Simulated scan of single mutants.
Amino acid sequence: MYRIEQEKPADLWEVEALYDLCFAPGREALSSYRLREGVSQVAEFSLVVRDTDNTLAAAIRYWPVLVGPKAALLLGPIAVHPTRQGEGLGDLLMRTSLDLARVAGWERVLLVGDLPYYQRFGFDILPDVVMPAPSNPARVLGYSLTSGAWDMCVGEVCKYVSHERF
């Protein structure tokens, strides 16, 4: 039995430890981390999953960015503890957080990841969106929370320090 809740400030070090466990050393050198520096995460969609013993099983975070002049949510990281993988927790976090973002009025989500994994949620390659270097363009993926949200949304991705969407 698991429960999903919004990540709290007290969860910070436990969530960071999970990310350290699940990702390669140097993860913070990735271009997506440059977009997060000095920017507050979007707390209402940054979620954790805990078991009945209150042990952290999974986490997901979102950050505001701009793609050209338009706001988007940068998803990531998402991680599931290695002992809990295969239980559907990543799927649960993805679907729950995307639904929350849609209800809150966000239009688009961006991430850097593997298309074969994220395609099942509706993500696709964004050929006209440019992440800061170094980034592999084939790993720049987008998801529309509203119909046509990525149409005519092109350009470089940069920091967005305000949570206002327009």
Rank of each mutant, 00 (worst) to 15 (best):
D99A: 14
Q85I: 05
G122S: 00
V130W: 10
A79C: 03
N136E: 14
D51Q: 06
Q85C: 03
S97T: 11
L73Q: 04
L126A: 11
I60L: 09
V48E: 10
V48T: 11
D128H: 13
T96P: 02
D53V: 07
A57E: 12
G68W: 02
R95E: 15
N54L: 12
R102D: 02
I125A: 13
A104I: 07
L75A: 10
A59E: 06
Q119F: 05
L93K: 02
T52A: 15
L126G: 03
A101T: 02
V129G: 00
L66W: 10
N54E: 15
V48A: 08
T52Y: 11
K70N: 12
L92C: 11
L98H: 02
D53G: 14
P132D: 03
A104P: 07
R139Q: 15
D99W: 11
Y117S: 02
G76F: 06
F121C: 06
D51Y: 03
P64N: 06
A57K: 12
P127Y: 04
I125V: 15
V65T: 00
D99S: 14
R108L: 04
L89F: 05
D99R: 14
L100Y: 10
T55I: 13
R95N: 14
Q119E: 15
P116I: 01
G122Q: 01
L75Q: 00
P134F: 04
V65L: 05
H81E: 05
P82E: 01
G113Q: 04
I125Y: 10
L75C: 08
A57S: 12
I125K: 14
R120E: 08
T96Q: 09
R102S: 08
S46N: 06
P64Q: 04
A104G: 07
M131H: 10
L126V: 04
A101M: 01
P134K: 01
E87H: 13
S135F: 08
G76M: 02
I78F: 05
A101K: 00
V112G: 06
V49A: 15
F121P: 08
L75D: 02
L126P: 05
A79W: 00
H81I: 06
A133E: 14
R95H: 12
R120P: 06
F121H: 07
T55V: 14
T52V: 14
L47F: 04
L89K: 00
E107I: 01
I60Y: 05
V67W: 07
A79M: 01
D91T: 14
R84M: 13
L89E: 00
R61K: 11
L110K: 03
D91M: 09
P82V: 03
K70A: 13
P137T: 04
G113W: 08
S97G: 11
Y117A: 01
L74Q: 09
V65S: 04
T83F: 11
L93Q: 01
V112F: 12
M131N: 07
R50M: 09
L73I: 06
P137I: 03
E107D: 13
L100T: 08
A104H: 11
D128C: 08
V65K: 05
A58L: 06
R50S: 10
N54F: 12
V140R: 03
L73C: 08
L111W: 09
M131W: 09
L98M: 10
A101Q: 00
P69S: 14
A59V: 07
R84V: 06
A101F: 06
T52L: 14
W63V: 10
G122F: 00
K70P: 00
R84N: 11
A101G: 06
S97M: 07
Y62G: 07
M131Q: 09
I78A: 10
T96R: 07
E87L: 15
G86W: 03
